[in-house]
């Protein structure tokens, strides 16, 4: 599979604070790739740097043939990448339906609202309610569901399982498998290695703002011990 996303020597700053020190990684088309690492390692910052969301960046971020790092933030999604942030970003002043409809459809080939609701039936029942009145798991589903409509082929999912009950974590895992089968390419930030290891084709380990290791699914048996040491589990 050719690489859909290629990041080379990516540096990033929040104001004066230098948080990424030359991240290099690639995500093959149609695969699920995880970024593993401890809190503050630079996983979330890597996703934010891809989107240009509230962060200054330098280096190369290539999506297919397009270079993203020099684009204005609102132009980046138009090339087919969508981001589901760690804090989920459900809008309190919008209803569930409005939250779902908010991200505009930018490219052909995205899922229809009906298809999204079929994937997340609980959102259909609560469409009229306030977005932030949903449970944590439902909010996460809404946050993922709304970016599936946009036509993006690459999804950046930031810790979709954080703070959720095990049964919901399992559901999210199933959803990610379904999305992979549908041909989405997924870059997944995770701290839950057990969860990530079941889904991913490739694991990157991020430490101190750099990628320090890479383990393919095929090498997982041999690499597991190494990954667990990095994560301190």
């Amino acid at each position: 599979m050719p690489d859909l996303l290629t990041i080379r020597d990516l540096h990033a700053w929040y104001g004066e604070s230098h948080v990424l020190h030359g991240v290099t990684l690639s995500v093959p088309e149609g695969q699920v790739v995880t970024l593993l690492g401890r809190n503050g390692a630079g996983k979330t910052s890597t996703l934010r740097a891809i989107m240009g969301a509230g962060i200054t960046r330098k280096g190369s971020v290539q999506l297919g043939d397009s270079e993203l790092s020099s684009l204005a933030p609102h132009r980046i999604p138009r090339l087919g990448v969508a981001w589901c942030p760690e804090e989920r970003g459900i809008f309190a002043s919008l209803s569930v339906a409005e939250n779902l409809a908010l991200p505009p459809v930018l490219l052909a080939g995205g899922m229809s609202t009906e298809e999204v609701l079929d994937l997340f039936p609980r959102l259909r029942e609560k469409a009229g309610g306030q977005g932030t009145k949903l449970s944590g798991g439902e909010q996460q589903m809404l946050a993922i569901g709304r970016i599936l409509r946009t036509g993006a082929r690459l999804l950046l999912l930031d810790e979709p399982t954080e703070g959720l009950a095990p049964v919901i974590v399992q559901q999210i895992g199933q959803i990610i498998s379904v999305l992979r089968e549908r041909g989405f390419t997924i870059l997944l930030v995770e701290q839950n290695f057990k969860f990530a290891s079941r889904l991913a084709d490739r694991h990157y380990v991020v430490e101190h703002g750099q990628v320090v290791d890479c383990v393919e699914r095929a090498d997982l048996a041999a690499g597991r011990g190494r990954l667990e040491t990095y994560l301190g589990v």
Binding site: A53, G54, P73, H74, P85, G89, A92, S93, P103, I147
Partner: peptide
């Protein structure tokens, strides 16, 4: 809805491709 959303979290709304 876009206006309300941008009032809450302009960074995320921009990351949805809205100018």
């Amino acid at each position: 809805a876009r206006l309300r959303a941008a009032t809450e979290n302009p960074t995320l709304v921009r990351a949805f491709g809205i100018n």
